[in-house]
């Protein structure tokens, strides 16, 4: 399995690749785009500058270095849709990406996928998690359209993931393995992540919760309110799916994705090292329970506390760890 890491600056490339990343992904908001739509209307979903390269030339340097190191670079153009007015700028960006040697575009907009195919643009398309592929038929739908890789929805259980991979052949599948676990289904979430410098999104605000109609406070309602608010109390930025790597490899996952565009370089490198360490353990032929134990130990050693269901990418494994 490959390790796919986020990158926002050229000077991160060496550390990430040396730590074990085989693939890098990042984004860039062109000046003309930023002038018109501001960062709140980013070309690639991330609405803050820390998650963006500063210039095309910096990405070109990153691609050159990555290729020298036998690594790949993918460009994110993953808005769930683009308007008619945005298309000329968007197509200009794709034309540059092809000439710069970008290895794949990370896309979600069906209109854009159809446009790239219509133009026979010579570049791989990787389907973003924002397209919410949750079943075999949906995977086959996008395979029919010509995408080369699908990032599966992060809420799928291991069994659901295994089933899709076994049903849909001759296409690469990727899953999230570290950081950034959204409480909602990301591709079906239309909350606006505004350009807030504190990066507090609507899904993790602390809400005042009441029942409708008022005073219908059944115990089920109170419990649901507590469960809803629990998301803002947990550091989902430290989400982890290391335990699942044992089964993901057997299932045939091609690439393990680390979330975290815009995070500190040390955070990114730490995640790559963690996934890399578990990948080496897997290659050594460890048994399943030994692997699970090593993964949970590594999490505790790294973050100073045990994992919990809110940060776990594979809650279906939790009862199986002895």
């Amino acid at each position: 399995m490959k390790i796919l890491a986020p990158i926002d600056r050229f000077d991160e490339a060496e550390r990430l690749i040396q730590a074990g990343a085989d693939e890098l992904y990042g984004g860039f908001v062109p000046t003309g785009w930023k002038d018109t739509y501001t960062m709140a209307g980013s070309i690639n979903k991330r609405t803050f500058q820390e998650a963006q390269f500063e210039s095309r030339s910096e990405i070109e340097d990153t691609i050159r270095y990555a290729h020298e190191q036998k690594a790949s670079f993918f460009l994110t153009l993953n808005n769930d849709y683009y308007s008619r007015k945005q298309y000329p700028l968007l197509l200009n960006e794709i034309e540059w990406a092809v000439s710069a040697g970008v290895d794949a575009l990370l896309v979600a907009d069906l209109g854009l996928i159809l446009e790239v195919k219509k133009r026979e643009t010579p570049i791989e398309l990787h389907l973003s998690i924002l397209s919410s592929v949750m079943n075999s038929q949906a995977a086959a739908f996008f395979k029919d359209l010509g995408v080369q890789r699908i990032v599966l929805d992060r809420t799928l259980t291991l069994r659901e993931t295994e089933r899709i991979i076994s049903n849909v052949k001759d296409i690469q599948f990727e899953v999230f393995i570290m950081y950034g676990k959204c409480p909602n289904i990301e591709g079906l979430c239309t909350f606006f992540h505004r350009d807030d410098p504190k990066h507090v999104w609507p899904c993790c605000l602390k809400y005042t919760i009441s029942s409708v109609p008022p005073n219908s406070e059944l115990k089920e309602t109170l419990r649901a309110a507590d469960a809803q608010n629990a998301w803002c109390l947990n550091d989902r930025g430290r989400a982890c799916g290391l335990c699942a790597m044992y089964d993901l490899e057997k299932a045939g996952i091609y690439s393990l994705k680390i979330a975290g565009r815009g995070r500190y370089t040390d955070d990114k490198v730490r995640a790559v090292r963690m996934v890399g360490e578990m990948r080496r353990l897997l290659a050594s032929g460890t048994d399943r329970q030994g692997f699970y134990r090593s993964a949970t130990d590594l999490y505790k050693k790294t973050f100073g506390k045990t994992c919990n269901p809110f940060v776990c990418y594979s809650p279906d494994l939790r009862g199986k760890i002895l």
């Binding site: 809400y207 005042t208 919760i209 009441s210 029942s211 409708v212 309110a225 809803q228 809650p315 279906d316």
Partner: peptide
């Protein structure tokens, strides 16, 4: 309740039909 989706298939009591939550911020 910290359970996986696999478990929910058998455990869900469909209490979502009881009432609605209002979230204010």
């Amino acid at each position: 309740e910290g359970k996986s989706w696999e478990n929910l298939k058998n455990m869900c009591k469909k209490s979502c039909s009881l009432n609605v939550l209002a979230l204010d911020s």
